[in-house]
């Protein structure tokens, strides 16, 4: 009953933003940049997607705008933190603050509204039907009619894995994360590589935001990322930034969120189901990290 067709259908919607944001965080993590501004960058992406889709009348315009402004947010992060040497945590706090303030500000300025912007002119990201899948197995509910961004997220998981392992930039990025001084003596600029990593993470967060605002729904509400960026941070830490671990972990947290949504229908107060992902995140992270701590991987 809990896992009926509607539930399976909803699952990718919960997974996709977490997956994209966690991949963004993973790239920074591997380059040893502690980016906890995922939340803010997602929010900027969500707003830009709505603005772009509304203004251009196309979903591509929305996604492109989300990627552009996500990337710009990443560029700003890179400039303040890497170029100017600001503390990662302080810059992250500043970026998250900037995201909340500026999206509400622009909501007023561009759409003259408070709280929420909702208009038929916002074009949604299309869903891909897979008619050949058998309806009986549930696979059809799960995979058919899911957003382009869901499939993009899956593809990016493997693409980023491949990039990290096999590509020049991926190798240099891991090296920058391991020992930036050594990279300098190898004649490369760790700052440049890390900055590129942060910009890429901004673009990915932009996509995550677009999934929230023009794919799951077609509207923007204030602070709509609602802590998902922090769940993504937890996923990154749990998986030590390895994309192939991030995918199942993001699915797990998507499942919890979807489940919470479900249980809410059964009469449990919304506050409890809303809190569920954060409590689970904290407990699971604690379990994973204390095992690593015991085996001496971290001190």
């Amino acid at each position: 009953m809990l896992f009926d067709a509607a539930f399976l259908d909803s699952l990718p919607r919960f997974v996709t933003p977490l997956l994209l944001a966690a991949l963004a965080g993973a790239i920074c993590h591997r380059a040893a940049v502690f980016n906890i501004a995922l939340e803010g960058m997602m929010l900027i992406g969500a707003f830009s997607a709505v603005a772009g889709a509304y203004a251009s009348g196309t979903w591509i315009g929305g996604v492109a705008m989300a990627m552009l402004f996500g990337g710009l947010a990443g560029l700003a992060f890179a400039w303040f933190s890497i170029r100017r040497g600001g503390d990662d945590i302080v810059v992250s706090i500043g970026m998250n603050f900037l995201a909340i303030g500026s999206t509400i500000f622009m909501l007023r300025l561009l759409f003259d509204t408070r709280g929420q912007f909702d208009d038929p002119g916002i074009i949604a990201v299309p869903k891909i039907p897979l008619p050949f899948l058998d309806f009986q197995t549930g696979l059809s509910s799960l995979l058919s009619n899911q957003s382009v961004l869901f499939w993009l997220g899956l593809a990016l998981t493997f693409a980023i894995t491949f990039l990290l392992r096999r590509h020049r930039f991926g190798l240099q990025l891991r090296a920058a994360g391991e020992n930036p001084e050594a990279l300098k003596t190898a004649g490369l600029s760790p700052d440049r590589i890390r900055s590129i990593a942060v910009v890429i993470s901004g673009v990915l967060c932009g996509l995550a935001g677009a999934q929230l605002s023009i794919s799951n729904v077609t509207l923007f509400t204030e602070n709509m990322s609602a802590g998902r960026g922090w769940i993504a941070v937890v996923i990154v830490l749990m998986c030590s930034g390895r994309p192939l671990w991030i995918l199942p972990t993001a699915i797990l947290f998507g499942l919890i969120e979807a489940l919470g949504f479900r249980i809410q229908g059964l009469g449990l107060p919304q506050q409890f189901t809303d809190a569920l992902p954060y409590v689970v995140a904290l407990v699971v992270l604690a379990a994973v990290l204390s095992r690593k701590k015991k085996s001496g991987q971290i001190t």
Partner: peptide, 11 residues
């Protein structure tokens, strides 16, 4: 030493 401990010798 200017090495990357988590990477392989080849890398």
């Amino acid at each position: 030493f200017m090495l990357f401990p988590g990477l392989t010798v080849l890398e």
